[in-house]
Every structure is written in structure tokens, then in C-alpha cells.
């Protein structure tokens, strides 16, 4: 049973998430500025975050910088993009490893800013963050990848 304070937090979170969705901010995929990839298809992005694709075209290992569970970016990734729960997601990754595939490197970061710092310090990393955080100081130096040729905010952009 949730306490009234927890309830209020959830309510506020839901309110803000709903407000952001209503505002159409969506989510952005950021990578190290030295990364040669600037555009990804939705399927390629889904393959990367589902662990089926583990290397960049330059053969460097993909490091997935994921937001902690409950964050808007994590919920969007799990609930709407991969359509899987966080537990199931972790289990599927372990299943892949057991199947003999090279496991995907996932680092969970507790804020969009930390995710941006991580991506900045690890050149092969990629993170899904809220588009509103892309303008933060730690994120401005990263490259925002186009999805299916569309930048965040453009019409038809899929990650929102």
C-alpha cells in the first residue's frame, strides 16, 4: 500500500509526464560527438536497446546508458518502445548471454545529466534521454542522433 506521500510523488510524476507528452517534447538519442553514426532507424535503435545489436558500424562495443527504472526515459523505453517490463528486459538480456551471444553493456544512470556525462566520457556509449534535457550543459556537447532522418521536434518523429 502506497503512502500518501508516495502517492503524491507518483501523481506529480504522472502529471509532469503527461504534461511533457502533451507538450510533445519526446525523447532524444545522444551519442559521443566522435561517433560516426548520426542517424538510426527505429528498428536499429530497438535492436540496440534490446541487445540484439552490440557493435557500432566501426566495430566498437555499444554501451547502453540507460536511465534508472521509473524515470520517464526508462518508462518510455520499456513501456512504449520495447513494450517490455524492466524485469523482463533484464531477463531477456541474460537469456541472450546464455545463448552464447556477447552480452550488451548496460549502465544505469540516475539522471539525464549523468547519462550525458557518461556518454561524453565513454565514446561508444548511447543514451535515451528526455528531449528537454538535451539543452542542459552536460548534454550540449553530445550528438543528438536523427531517427528515421528526423530530429526531435520535427513532424513524424517517432520517439514521443
Amino acid at each position: 500500500m502506497q503512502t500518501p506521500s508516495q502517492f503524491r510523488k507518483l501523481a506529480l510524476a504522472g502529471f509532469f509526464a503527461a504534461a511533457r507528452l502533451a507538450a510533445g517534447q519526446g525523447f532524444s538519442v545522444v551519442a559521443h560527438p566522435s561517433n560516426p553514426v548520426s542517424n538510426l532507424s527505429v528498428s536499429a535503435l530497438r535492436a540496440m536497446f534490446s541487445g540484439t545489436v552490440t557493435h557500432w558500424p566501426n566495430h566498437s562495443k555499444i554501451v547502453l546508458a540507460q536511465r534508472s527504472a521509473g524515470s520517464p526515459a526508462n518508462r518510455f523505453l520499456m513501456d512504449r518502445f520495447l513494450n517490455i517490463s524492466w524485469q523482463d528486459y533484464k531477463r531477456s538480456l541474460e537469456g541472450l548471454e546464455f545463448m552464447g551471444q556477447e552480452p550488451a553493456i548496460i549502465r544505469v544512470l540516475n539522471s539525464d545529466t549523468a547519462a550525458c556525462k557518461f556518454v561524453f566520457n565513454v565514446p561508444s556509449a548511447v543514451a535515451l534521454i528526455e528531449s528537454s534535457s538535451a539543452g542542459a550543459a552536460d548534454c550540449r556537447e553530445l550528438r543528438v542522433l536523427k531517427i528515421d532522418g528526423l530530429s526531435p521536434g520535427q513532424g513524424g518523429y517517432r520517439l514521443r
Binding site: 549502465r107 566520457n121 565514446p123 556509449a125
Partner: peptide
């Protein structure tokens, strides 16, 4: 150092 940092951060 960047290489070492990358190694640290990716675990």
C-alpha cells in the same frame, strides 16, 4: 586516460 575511463565507466 580516456581509454581507461571508458573501461571504468563500462565496468
Amino acid at each position: 586516460r580516456d581509454a581507461v575511463i571508458a573501461g571504468i565507466l563500462i565496468g
